[in-house]
Amino acid sequence: MRARAPITGFMARHPRLSQLATIALFLLVWEITARFFVDKMFLSPPSRVYSEIDRVLNTKGLMQALTLTLYELSAAFVIAVAIGMAIGLSVGLNAFARRCFMPIILLLYGIPQIVILPLFILGLGIGPPSKIAFGVTHGIFPIILAIVAGVQNLKPVLLTSARSMGANRWHVLRYVVLPHMMPSFFSGLRLGMTGVLLGVLLAELYVSTAGIGYFTGLFTQNFDPTRLLGLISILAAMAIALNEFMRTVERRFSRWRGND
């Protein structure tokens, strides 16, 4: 093979640096495009979004909207995890339940839920309950699937071995099944979080008088991309922070994996 150019070799040895460079390049392209090529009614450059972020935060009612959305998100997430775990474990641990219910679950997961959003609004009104419910139905499926999959690929010899040493059902669940499914449980949680975010924001965008979705709609209709992108940046920052938090917890539970 030919010797690589020195810059490529240097970047290859520093993935973190290449990562930052990619982001910087993206921001640069965005900046140039927004400044010179696109109508400023449709797109704002990142420098302007950043310098005018306080204009977003000072928008009347926006802080309440942020709080409300956060409340809807956390409520939906907690419910999705609780129900998802109960369903995932009972379906995953029982061969009969799995064969009976898994096809139904997959079928339901395959339906684009947006088409039944109006039903949620009809049944639960335009307030937070319909948003929470819609967030739950989006977040719960990845969690169920991750738990079922996580319980599935447990090596049978580990179960046999535990039983041969006298493990009872609780022991098996606590010391074999749960630690085994931890990694997939956490990826389920992260996917579930993404699902919940999607569900809640979709429902807010569809119809609402409050919440983040209301304001994204409002800023778009007012041709105010600066504030729209500012709001999106705040949301993205929140999502990234949550995701990073989950990854930290996940690493704590999967120390053994790094050594495989």
Binding site: K155, V157, L158, T160, S161, A162, S164, M165, G166, A167, H171, Y175, V176, P179, H180, M182, S254, W256, D260
Partner: peptide, 27 residues
């Protein structure tokens, strides 16, 4: 009766000594 299996039947998420302690906990 204690068993030693053909495949590796240690719990990968526990250290060696944790594995041994866990066996005694089960027993």
């Amino acid at each position: 009766i204690a068993y030693v299996f053909q495949e590796n039947a240690l719990f990968p998420w526990n250290t060696i000594i944790e594995n041994i302690r866990l066996g005694m906990l089960f027993q």
